[in-house]
Design a protein around this nucleic acid. Structure first.
Lengths: 316, 316
DNA sequence: CGCCGTTACGAATTACGTAATCATA
DNA sequence: TATGATTACGTAATTCGTAACGGCG
C-alpha cells in the first residue's frame, strides 16, 4: 500500500545514526498535513496552500512514507484522520502555531511594536541634541525600549565593537577602520566669562590677551581637551590653567562665580548664554568647530528600530 | 544588503491576500534556522543537517528574505542572533519541539506503545476463541487499549462500515462487497441433552427420531437460527420447538434441567460437555459446520496495533 | 595558513500542474 | 454524472554540492 521508493538515502542515514534527532522529516509536509487535517479535504487544502490537488495528495503520501504509516483514511468524501493521525495532530498544530507566532513576533519587531535601542552618547549631547528626537520617536513608537549609555566615548566605542550598544553619538574623531561615521551637526567651543569679567564684554580679544586671565578647563582627558591643547600649540599660546573641573556643568558654575574664563561648547550652554549668566568672549581667533554624528559598525547590520531612529536623526 | 530577488510570486500573493495565515514561509527554513541558532555556526549546522555549508548559508539568507529582515550577525567566528532573531528563537524552538513530539507520538503508535483496538465480537466467540489471544497480546503490549463491542453482528457490521470498530470477528455470512472475510476457525452446532435424556446417550439417532423431542433454540433471529432453519428444510424435518431461549447460556441451563434437547455450538459449551452436565447426541446427519473469522473493510487501512493483533490471530 | 561564511554555477533532484483514471454516491 | 482522490508524465523550478572567493586572526 505504501511505496517506500522515496527517501531511501535519508532512511539509510537515519538507520545508521540509530534514531537521529527526528528532524529529518521535511517540515513542509507537516504544514500540508495540518491543512489537510483541518480541512479534511485535499481539494480545499490545495486551494488554501495555493498548489494543485495532486501536489497535496503526493505530499501527504510522502509524509506517510517518511513516518512509516498511514495518517488518513481516504474516501471519496474526503480525508479522515486515522487514530495515529489524530494522535499527532495536536502536536503538529502546536508546531504550526509556534511558527506562526514566530512570524508575528518578527512582524512586531519589523513594524516597531517591539524592540530595543541601545545608544551610547554623552549627557551633554543628549540634552543638547538627542532629547527632542527621542521624544518624537517615543511618541510614535512607544513600545521601543531606549537605553542610554553615558560612559566616556572610548569605552562606548568598545561597547559598540562588542555589540553592547547599537550605535554611538559622539564628536568626530578622525577616520576609523571598523566604524563608519555619519555627521549630524557642528559644535563650537567658545570662551565664556561671567559679569566678573564685564570689562571684556564687547571687546574683540586676541589669544594673547586671553592668556592673562585664569582659564578653566575640563579635567577629564577628553577629545575636547586634546583639541584645545592642539589649538594652543598651533597658535603658540599658553594658558595659565588655574583649575581643572570635573564636569562641564560644574565648569559653568565656576565660571559664573567669577573663578576665571571657561572653555565650553556653545551649543551645550546656550541656555546660560541666553539667560545672561555668562557671556561669550569675542576672540579674534575662534576655536575650531567640531562635527558630531553617529558611529555604527561598518558591517552595518542594525535592527528595525535602530534603522528607524537613525532615519529620523538624518531627516534634519 | 538583502536581495529580494526570490519569492517574488509568493510575496505578491501575500500582498494580494492582505496578511494571509502566515503559513507561506517554508517550514524547512525554520528547521535550518533552529539548528544554526543553536550551534551558532553554519558549518556545524550543515553537518547536523547532512547538507553542505553553502546550502545552509543560502537557506538562512532565504529565510531572512522571506521574513524581510536580518536574523543573524555574521562574523568570521560564527553566527550570532540579532535582537529579532533572539526574539523569534523561542517560538521556533517550540515549533521544532512540537514537530519532534509528533514524531515521538507516531513512534509510540508504530511501536505499539500506544493505541486502541476496537473489536466487534460476540461474548461466546470472545470466551471460546479470542480471550487467550487477548491475554497474549496484552501481555506483550500492555498499553494498547482494547475495546470489545458485543452488539448483534448486523449492528457490528454497520459499526465496521462507519469505522466505529476496527474489525469484527464473527461467523462467515457469505461473500460481501465491502468487507473482506478471513477465516480463523470452524464452529460446529450440535444437539445436546442432559441426563433426563440418558436413554438417548450412545444411540445413533436419525433426525426424524429427534423431532419427537422438544427442541430448545435461541430466540434471537441470529444467523445460527437461520442456518438451522435452512438445515431443517433441506432435510425435510420439522422440529417441535417448545421454547425459544434468549441467550445461549440460558439455553444451556434449560437443557441442564431437562427442558428438552438443545442446539448449541459445540466449541462454546465444551466445558459443560467435559463436566458431563450435558452430552452431545449422536445424530446421523450432523449440522453443518460454519466458519468464523475476522471481517475488515476492503480498503484495509488499519492501525499498527490492529495489524499486530490480526497477525497474532492468523499465526495459528 | 586555517577557520568560517558567502558567491557562482552546473547537475541532479524535486515539485508542480495538466490531463487522465478511479471510485463512490 | 458529479465529487474527490490518485496516477502518470513532461516541464520548470529548486536544491544541492563542488569549487572558488573574501575576511579575519
Amino acid at each position: 500500500m505504501y511505496h517506500y521508493n522515496k527517501n531511501t538515502k535519508k532512511l539509510l542515514l537515519q538507520l545508521l545514526l540509530v534514531m537521529g534527532d527526528e528532524m529529518d522529516i521535511n517540515y513542509e509536509l507537516y504544514k500540508i498535513f495540518y491543512v489537510v487535517a483541518t480541512t479534511g479535504n485535499v481539494t480545499a487544502a490545495a486551494k488554501e496552500l495555493h498548489i494543485s490537488q495532486p501536489a497535496v495528495s503526493k505530499h501527504i503520501r510522502n509524509l506517510e512514507c517518511s513516518l512509516g504509516g498511514p495518517l488518513f483514511i481516504r474516501s471519496n468524501q474526503g480525508m479522515i484522520l486515522t487514530e495515529t493521525g489524530r494522535a499527532i495532530y495536536q502536536s503538529i498544530k502546536d508546531g504550526v502555531n509556534a511558527f506562526s507566532n514566530a512570524n508575528l513576533i518578527f512582524s512586531d519587531y519589523a513594524s516597531l511594536l517591539k524592540g530595543t535601542i541601545k545608544i551610547g552618547i554623552s549627557t551633554s549631547l543628549t540634552r543638547f541634541y538627542l532629547l527632542p528626537y527621542l521624544e518624537t520617536f517615543h511618541k510614535e513608537y512607544p513600545n521601543i525600549t531606549i537605553l542610554i549609555y553615558t560612559d566616556p566615548s572610548a569605552m562606548l566605542k568598545k561597547k559598540l565593537q562588542t555589540g553592547e550598544i547599537d550605535f554611538l553619538i559622539a564628536k568626530y574623531n578622525g577616520p576609523d577602520s571598523e566604524f563608519s561615521f555619519h555627521p549630524l551637526g557642528e559644535l563650537h567651543d567658545i570662551f565664556i566669562a561671567s559679569s566678573a569679567y564685564d570689562s571684556l564684554r564687547g571687546k574683540n580679544l586676541t589669544l594673547e590677551e586671553l592668556t592673562k586671565y585664569p582659564i578653566l578647563l575640563q579635567r577629564e582627558p577628553s577629545t575636547s581637551r586634546r583639541r584645545f591643547d592642539a589649538f594652543c600649540r598651533e597658535n603658540n599660546v599658553s594658558f595659565d590653567v588655574s583649575t581643572y573641573i570635573a564636569s562641564s556643568t560644574l565648569l559653568e558654575d565656576f565660571v559664573k562665580i567669577g573663578f576665571g574664563i571657561g572653555v565650553a561648547t556653545k551649543e551645550y550652554i546656550q541656555k546660560e548664554l541666553d539667560q545672561g549668566n555668562v557671556f561669550e568672549l569675542s576672540v579674534m581667533k575662534s576655536l575650531p568647530s567640531i562635527s558630531f554624528g553617529y558611529y555604527v559598525l561598518k558591517d552595518g547590520i542594525t535592527s528595525f528600530s535602530v534603522k528607524k531612529l537613525i532615519e529620523l536623526l538624518e531627516k534634519r
